[in-house]
Design a protein around this nucleic acid. Structure first.
Lengths: 210, 210
DNA sequence: GTATTTACGAAACCCGAGTTGCGTAATGGG
DNA sequence: CCCATTACGCAACTCGGGTTTCGTAAATAC
């Protein structure tokens, strides 16, 4: 796996030191306050070295965030309402964490904080976008399985569209934070899951299961 | 209304010339290719004059986009499924328009284009965010009324949560474009409205209308 | 008229992202 | 040992967003 390469090996401590410094800067001062000069200096590294590993500030910032949120566990308890609520709560928590980045007082205002910057960062670079899409597709695949199981045991209608259902849930959270700037509380996530499961129509559609 | 102000009056042609030049640049080269130096030169205006009216490039870009999309009409035909489908289609069209900005070939790739940049721009400046939130709240108010009417005539359940329903619909679209990078076709919008209206649960909740 | 206020233009400037050039350090290959 | 290769640090550089300074133009107030 680690085939002996030709030239001088990379200093193995650099990645860790840079990511640590960048994480501090990002969480303390937000995306705008993340300066590659400052990160390089605090990490005791030349800017050229930093740029050899992360070709842009966007890549560095995304790497930081990715490292902060690599705990994505989805459990199947047999109760789809509960499981989806947990899924939604995790996304909401992650969003809130990034929303607070760089805001000393916590969450006073309604700004989306660094969330928008990170989305834009992904949009600016195809390689980040690809990585991000794969990340979300992996998360979606897990949730997808959850829904399929619930459908198989008759808890959800047979014609349930898992892709749309997940877009509805996650999308509502992102939309609320990014676009409308309204807060997400536990009351909201409960209402959201209820709306997605129960539907809005007075006259329910054809009953299909069993 | 136009109370005579004290000093030299503003050149009334500047706004139009700058916005026109900025619109060309933004649509042709995307947000990143929008340079205030170039816009000022093409508009035949000094950079200082430009910055007196739009304090940052973000403000200018948002002004351009706002001008491009000030046609937000929501009609009530009495069929909530049809009306929500039209609402969703309009949002999808607006998103696609911005997604294509700066991409000569049209929509070859799956990038979110300038959508993310505009979201980030709003997040960077409280005044833009406030304006944007008000804009969306106005749009939401119209759609809100649509839902209330449908609820009043028994088409939707009495316990329908309009706020959540709209978040679900609009959010799914934004999420798809911004986060997962998947396309939005008319088939998708149909499925989305169906899912939101019909719900996913096999056993429908308590019937409440009438 | 003169003073004040505001707008415009031109140029120089600051600052951070990202690049370039160069000298040097550490590896493996012959 | 010598060479090619890759990594590192340093300093100077380009580029675009945004600011500052200054001289001048056009309006109102007196």
């Amino acid at each position: 796996m680690a085939e002996a390469r030709r030239g001088r090996p990379r200093d193995s401590g650099v990645d860790e030191r840079v990511l640590r410094a960048a994480t501090e800067q990002l969480l303390a001062h937000g995306y705008g306050g993340l300066s590659t000069d400052a990160v390089a200096e605090r990490a005791g590294v030349a800017k050229t070295t930093l740029y050899r590993r992360w070709p842009t500030k966007d890549h560095l910032a995304v790497a930081v965030v990715a490292r902060l949120q690599n705990e994505d566990e989805i459990t199947d308890t047999g109760d789809i309402r509960r499981d989806l609520a947990a899924y939604v709560a995790k996304i909401a928590a992650a969003l809130d964490r990034m929303r607070r980045a760089g805001r000393p007082g916590g969450a006073r205002d309604r700004s989306s904080g660094s969330v928008g910057e990170l989305v834009a960062a992904a949009a600016r670079h195809d390689d980040i976008a690809d990585l991000e899409h794969r990340m979300y597709e992996r998360r979606n695949a897990l949730a997808h399985a959850l829904i399929d199981a619930a459908r198989a045991r008759g808890e959800l209608r047979a014609d349930t569209d898992p892709e749309v259902l997940l877009d509805q849930l996650a999308g509502a959270l992102y939309y609320r934070v990014l676009i409308t700037g309204r807060p997400i509380g536990s009351a909201y996530t409960t209402r959201l899951v209820a709306a997605a499961l129960d539907g809005a129509l007075a006259r329910p559609p054809r009953r299909s299961p069993s």
